[in-house]
Write a protein that binds this DNA or RNA. Structure first.
Lengths: 342, 342
DNA sequence: TTGTATGCGTTATCAT
DNA sequence: ATGATAACGCATACAA
């Protein structure tokens, strides 16, 4: 691999001049520039990014850290983040925590992999507010998804309370009279779930006596089997709800599974709403109504926030609220006709 | 950020000795080691990976390049590759080509992002065999998925011919008498699809006159809408098949959609088999029978092959064949009862 | 067992 | 407008 020096020697100039040409600096005479360009081509010069990084202190790499990249929600986010980062000249490296608390704690301090990155976007799962409070590192970090509270780090998320409120309102307007949640978590740090529950309660309160709250279901994880179990409980319970909001589409898909087995009519006898609008939501039976965050907006917002933080470490900490919408499919009442989704 | 020199000064030794301690070299007296360790801790020393890389020529970064990370199949592969690479001490950076030929061509030459990586695992989409034949670069590269022929690069894939053969055999044994394919491509470079078609033909030939071949459907892309269209054609055609093998689960899901709309009974009047076993396949209606490659095996095989190639660039080019199996769900005939999948 | 010195390939500072 | 040269932080050949 040819280096700057090789090119300089061939062109009969100094390395400095070659560098100027490569980086489009001014102050290069036309004649010399031409000679250098020729030499560059002749040797098929490719700048060594590592050397450049050592010198400049920038490596052009952002970390994206999630519990599990194979989950649709994270995969789609990753895809959008790669696009957004590429547009700004950065490459994205991915890491998975599998929700391991120790790993997430270490990450908060060092950044991923001993900080070979300029910064990272992090979707925590097990992390607590206190972990962030105790953070000493200056490594540039932007949090997305789960809210860990604290005002020490930039955050990007949707208005979870409003989203849950809207979904509940819709179910009430559709005529449902007992509405339950699947997806609360006992853990004290699960703020996102609590905000959603608040939004539901607000809508229920506004509706007054005519609408009841179902018995909310707590879960450990957000997997299909958890939703399946939770729905099994609900269906057997004395005061069976006629509508459920699941705090993740995977929970909703498990719930639909159980309902299908029990021949409970969806949405007539039980309406189901999810969260995230993952691709599986379009292909479940029946297709799932769900809260869709604008994932592209999350990605660009997070990437821009991170680059801003890297460039300007002293700027005040910010919260970014990204838009969402309620997507109505056949798991809730609808007048529109089903369409094929691409 | 403290450097080796800072630590050396504090410990009253040379940078050389600190380096020895950090890298667990022998020949360090216990007493000095203790002093150095203390200094290391006091300054919270973190080695600068970039400087290390410049010196050693290794950066510990592997590229993983796919058309689109948001597609389940690629997301799952990415997840497995991150795990496998982490286990071997490497970090994974992701890049997306969106099937753009120029981008894939450039990649074959330089590696992703001007070769800030030690090597890359690449799932091509538009690339032709000739592009690889003309390759001059020595950048370590391992190909997975689509077969681009040529013996210039290491490849990892399943035995597509055998997989298609097995699926076809199963359909014949289930009593189907006219079997079609959805997913052939006109492009000359689509070798994978052709191998699958060969496998199907072999099974059909063996079955003799009792089984016919349906009219194979060509598609441009492997998306839901393509499968939907293709199935629409098949159902209306004069010699309508009673079973279909789709060369991607997304095609199969689109096909199932159309069948559901037309109230064609699956699998009784039309059996459907897919390829890939993406998560959506479990949640379609009915759940999809499909060919599942061992994705974890693909990942570890590809990572190991790549690291081997990086370490030993002169080794002979290899092909790695990974195992697969036919997963039977409700879109084909079955005697077993449906189960919830986690 | 440890220190000195050099170079990895760039960019940036200072001259000229 | 361009050349010489010093960093960037680390690992290592060579000395001691």
């Amino acid at each position: 691999m040819a280096t700057l020096k090789d090119v300089a020697r061939l062109a009969g100039v100094s390395a400095r001049t070659v560098s100027n040409v490569v980086n489009d600096q001014p102050y290069v005479a036309e004649a010399t520039r031409a000679r250098v360009v020729a030499a560059l081509a002749a040797l098929d010069y490719q700048p060594n990014q590592v050397a450049k990084s050592l010198r400049t202190g920038r490596i052009g790499l952002l970390g994206f850290v999630v519990p599990d990249l194979s989950q649709s929600h994270f995969a789609r986010l990753a895809s959008d983040i790669v696009e957004a980062a590429t547009a700004r000249g950065f490459t994205v490296a991915v890491d998975q925590t599998h929700g391991d608390l120790e790993r997430e704690r270490r990450l908060i301090q060092l950044g991923p992999r001993g900080a070979m990155f300029d910064g990272a976007i992090f979707h925590p799962e097990a992390l607590r507010a206190e972990d962030i409070e105790h953070r000493e590192s200056q490594f540039p970090l932007v949090l997305i998804g789960e809210r860990v509270a604290g005002d020490r780090l930039d955050h990007v998320y949707i208005d979870d309370r409003a989203a849950a409120y809207e979904a509940t309102r819709r179910l009430i307007d559709d005529g449902h009279r007992r509405i339950a949640a699947i997806g609360l978590r006992r853990a004290a740090y699960a703020r996102t779930a609590h905000l959603r529950e608040e939004g539901m309660r607000q809508a229920l309160d506004e509706a007054g006596d005519q609408v009841q709250q179902g018995r909310h279901q707590y879960v450990e994880r957000y997997e299909v089997s958890d939703g399946y179990e939770a729905m099994a409980n609900l269906v057997e319970s004395a005061e069976r709800p006629d509508a459920v909001i699941c705090f993740a589409d995977m929970l909703a898909i498990g719930a639909l599974h159980r309902l299908h087995e029990l021949r409970v009519a969806v949405p007539e006898d039980m309406a189901v709403v999810g969260f995230d609008d993952i691709t599986e939501a379009s292909f479940s039976y029946p297709p799932l109504s769900t809260i869709a965050a604008d994932h592209a907006e999350i990605a660009t917002t997070a990437v821009n926030a991170l680059i801003e933080r890297i460039t300007n470490p002293g700027a005040p900490i910010r919260e970014y609220v990204v838009s969402h919408r309620l997507v109505i499919r056949q798991s809730t009442r609808t007048d529109s006709t089903p369409e094929v989704r691409n």
